[in-house]
Amino acid sequence: MFKGLGQMGDMAKMMKAAKEMQSKMGELQDSLHDMTVTGESGAGLVKAVASAKGELKSLDIDPSIFNSDDKEVVEDLILAAIKDAQAKAAELAQQEMGKITEGLGLPADFKMPF
C-alpha cells in the first residue's frame, strides 16, 4: 500500500546532505578570504600575497631591483609574482573544496560551479 516510502527516506537524506553541503560551502567561502598564499618571482625579489579567493593583499618588492634601465624587467617580475599567487590561491581553494566533496562521498575531482 505504501510502496516507495523507502525512497522518501533516501530523498530526506539527500536533502539533509545538500543542506549540510550548502552550509559548509558558505563557511568555506568565508574562510577563503582569510587564507593566504604567497607567489614569488625573481628568486624571491618580488612577492605577492593573495587570499585563497585570488584577491591581491600585498606586494613586496626588494629595493635592489629598482633601476630605471630595468623597468620592463621589474614589471614582468611583478606580474609573474601576482600570477603565481593567483595560481596558488586557485589550487588552495580547490583543495579546500575537495575536502568538502570527499566528505559527502563525491569524487575528489568534482568541480564546483564557482
Rank of each mutant, 00 (worst) to 15 (best):
G42D: 07
K47V: 01
V46C: 07
F66P: 00
K83L: 04
D60I: 09
M1D: 11
E72V: 12
A85N: 07
E40S: 15
M112E: 06
K47R: 14
V74G: 01
K19D: 02
K16N: 13
G98V: 04
I65G: 03
E27I: 00
L106F: 15
T36L: 03
G6P: 00
K47T: 03
M21D: 04
A18M: 14
T36R: 05
D30W: 03
K111A: 13
M21C: 09
T36F: 05
K3M: 03
L92Q: 13
A89N: 08
I65R: 03
M11P: 01
V74R: 02
M14K: 11
M11N: 00
K24A: 13
D69G: 12
A12Q: 04
H33Q: 11
K53V: 13
D76K: 09
A17I: 07
M25A: 10
K16H: 10
F2G: 11
D10N: 07
A108S: 15
D70S: 09
F110A: 12
K3R: 12
K83A: 10
E27R: 02
E20N: 09
K16V: 05
I100L: 13
D62Q: 06
M21Q: 02
L104V: 08
M11Y: 01
G54M: 05
G54K: 08
A48W: 06
A50I: 05
L77G: 03
K111Y: 03
G4V: 07
M97E: 10
L59D: 05
A80Y: 05
E27C: 00
D84W: 07
S41H: 02
A85D: 06
P63S: 09
L79W: 01
S41P: 03
P107N: 06
A89K: 05
L5P: 00
K88W: 08
K3E: 12
I65M: 02
I61G: 04
A81Q: 04
V73R: 00
A93I: 10
S23D: 14
L32C: 12
D30N: 13
M8H: 01
L56Y: 08
D109R: 04
T101C: 03
A87H: 07
L5F: 15
E20A: 14
D69S: 15
I100Y: 04
G42F: 04
A50W: 02
A89W: 04
A89H: 07
K88S: 08
K3F: 08
G26D: 12
S51P: 06
G6T: 01
H33Y: 13
D62V: 06
